[in-house]
Write a protein that binds this DNA or RNA. Sequence first.
DNA 1: GCCTGCATGTAAACGGTTACATGATTCG
DNA 2: CGAATCATGTAACCGTTTACATGCAGGC
Lengths: 186, 186
Amino acid sequence: MKPRSSRFALLGLLALRPMSGYEIRKTIERSISNFWNESFGQIYPTLADLVAEGLVREVPSKSRSRLFEPTEKGKKELERWLAEPIELSVSRNVFLLKLFLARFAGPEATRRHFDEFRAGHRERLREYAATRVWLKSALRSSAHLAYWLAALDYGVAESKALLEWAGTAERDLALTSTKNEGARRK
Amino acid sequence: MKPRSSRFALLGLLALRPMSGYEIRKTIERSISNFWNESFGQIYPTLADLVAEGLVREVPSKSRSRLFEPTEKGKKELERWLAEPIELSVSRNVFLLKLFLARFAGPEATRRHFDEFRAGHRERLREYAATRVWLKSALRSSAHLAYWLAALDYGVAESKALLEWAGTAERDLALTSTKNEGARRK
DNA sequence: GCCTGCATGTAAACGGTTACATGATTCG
DNA sequence: CGAATCATGTAACCGTTTACATGCAGGC
């Protein structure tokens, strides 16, 4: 995640079709917000940088929005970045941190975290299902479809697995807690 | 992840046993580095902050390392934080971003990403298995064991699911790419 | 006329990593 | 003796989020 991937995210989105900063934000929200986000405070300055570097150019627009598209150089740069190897970075997981320290909390708190965790992932699965239907009809002939479905299924696989894990994990925890009934805290 | 969780991570680790900044770093590396990391540049100033707020105090030490432990107030604060609900945040996923944009890259690049992705998760599973063995013997009587194993299993479940996903996803992609043989790019 | 959504941007603050500086201790 | 590791800390930088400021357009 280190090497300024925001710029490439923007570059990639503009490669789909010319867009304004505002449209980029909306598009992200509707498509990749499950694994990627950009704020306006990031988008507009980055867009200016990309233009300054000749990776993106502004195209004339009838409306008051400023449309941008990648230049040839920009497309090359995008391809280069896409081919670059990915270091799988460790993203912080507050849920796991709290589980790791759960001995210091009451069992009620942990149970609530598990409940919310499950609810969250069930909700995500519902969203994914809706997105899947929509994608298939809206992008019937798009060359991107297969990749976008694959990305969607990543989320589905993850949430399903974590839901299952949550079930067994909580049952296991209940078992050991009844065994050492009494003493809490360290 | 928003509200300064670093401080609580340190507080939680110090609740396990009094530690120096250096030891905190080492402990993180050996235990929760799969889902949490702190750098020295973060640890030492945060430790100073925690002391200034009366959540942590320094305990005398024979060696040249400065040992810290949570105060009563600190323990209370930790418990309070542990009970707080968790908003499941979206962490950026470069792999998925590249998959989403894969139409702009060559199929070789995508194949390589998948290979590395699989290799990475297989490696993780190997590490998890080793950690599991070690944990069970080293913490046989610890009240933390059950939680730590649960946290470990989270990673196992995730990696297993993603390995499976990668297999089917790549196969699906291969199918559609042979169907639309010829045209690449947009 | 007013509210919502469209639209662009800036400034400040934040959380975090990296690099640097320094020196003691331990072990081969 | 020299290298690795222990140990503490600071400064600079980076990417990102949040809040703020501004104003137009379209529909109720």
